[in-house]
Design a protein around this nucleic acid. Structure first.
Lengths: 208, 208
DNA sequence: CAAAATATTGAGCGATGCTCAAAATAGTTC
DNA sequence: GAACTATTTTGAGCATCGCTCAATATTTTG
């Protein structure tokens, strides 16, 4: 009983790593089960002994990508002068850099769509949610009077806005902004959003 | 010679409309050439007499979608109190509403990817660029001293940020924000960005 | 109304994700 | 360790996809 399980665990790991390499080099659309099987030295059908289907495999690759992204964001959080605004700018730029350096893996996170009848498993959702804490923390420092849920909403908005800039900025080579320019624009916009949010929340009509 | 061309023109139109309906109801992934052929009463292979390939067809559907979006944004631009900030907020919310009401067609604009060796045709790029004028105009009113290209960069950033909020906001039903809440968040963030951009550009270190 | 030119057809090709009876391997019992 | 059972791996095969192209049907021409 141990021999089989051991081999399967190794094959499973090899499969995920092969899938990660394949997405990295050929994009999500270049991920083919037959190539994966050959790469890890196994029959075509054996892929489905290791994984339920390609969706699950993509989700596993995505989970690894999110973990590496999380590490980068954590590093950015504390690497630099203190203060919530500077931290938010660093985090946003770290997100941009991660996307640029892991383009296809990062794209796969958003290109992949589950079939309508098969919802995202809970652990995949949790993986995503976990990232928001990086933004939540500095925002809480900026707006100590706001509720947790209120800050969560703003965190989501801020992340989405930066994500949009990165996504469209790296989209097509023809219109694409050079990464250096994109970083500057992101810094400008994050600062603007923070400034604007602070000044709006201290205007008349808002509680102190 | 006229009989053939006439029929082909009608078939072409029918094909594009059938494709649009199919994307709207089943999403981009649900667009199948065999179903299209049956829908317009034509042989499977005949689709390729009317259109080079599916990519071209998707681009044509996209062009129509962009045209309708353009109309909505134009309407939003002038429908309301004057002033560049209010106009920008209206435009952003109109973008959100369009995406919500044309979800699959709007998604198709961004989900679709050309094969690496076949770049976007020029007319498709022009279609996209044309939309930025809606944002460019109010921004130019807000920053009369800035250059055209400078404003173009900010317009792109602003659009990307709002796009990100809409894209992630409408993403998954589980985490999805109700559209009404999304509209409010977008309004808040656009106001914040405008406020922040204005106050940043009038800070020391910037030319007057 | 033939003959030539052109347009339409649909069987078929190569890929793809996934399945499942059969073959190979591991585990168990004496 | 041989015989038998249980499990695992295999790869041919299925359904589906975008797309092609010889064969057929249609239109235009002389």
């Amino acid at each position: 009983m141990s021999k089989t399980l051991e081999r399967r665990a190794k094959q499973r790991e090899a499969l995920i790593e092969a899938a990660e390499r394949m997405v990295r080099t050929r994009g999500l659309a270049g991920l083919k089960t037959r190539d994966l099987a050959q790469e890890i030295g196994v029959a075509n059908g054996a892929v489905y002994n290791l994984v339920a289907d390609v969706d699950e495999l993509v989700l596993m690759v995505g989970s690894r990508t999110l973990a590496r992204l999380d590490a980068d964001l954590s590093a950015a959080e504390s690497a630099g002068p203190p203060g919530p605004e500077a931290a938010l700018v660093r985090i946003a730029i770290a997100y941009c850099d991660f996307a640029a350096h892991n383009l296809e893996l990062w794209r796969a996170l958003f290109e992949h769509r589950m079939p309508a009848d098969k919802p995202l498993p809970d652990w995949a959702i949790a993986d995503q949610m976990h990232l928001f804490r990086h933004i939540h923390q500095p925002l809480a420092a900026l707006f100590p009077q706001r509720s947790f849920d209120d800050i969560s909403v703003t965190a989501r908005s801020l992340f989405s806005a930066v994500h949009g800039m990165v996504a469209l900025g790296l989209e097509q080579k023809l219109i694409a902004v050079p990464v250096a320019a994109l970083r500057e624009q992101i810094a400008t916009m994050v600062k603007a959003m923070v400034t604007g949010l602070v000044s709006n929340s201290s205007e008349p009509g808002h509680a102190l």
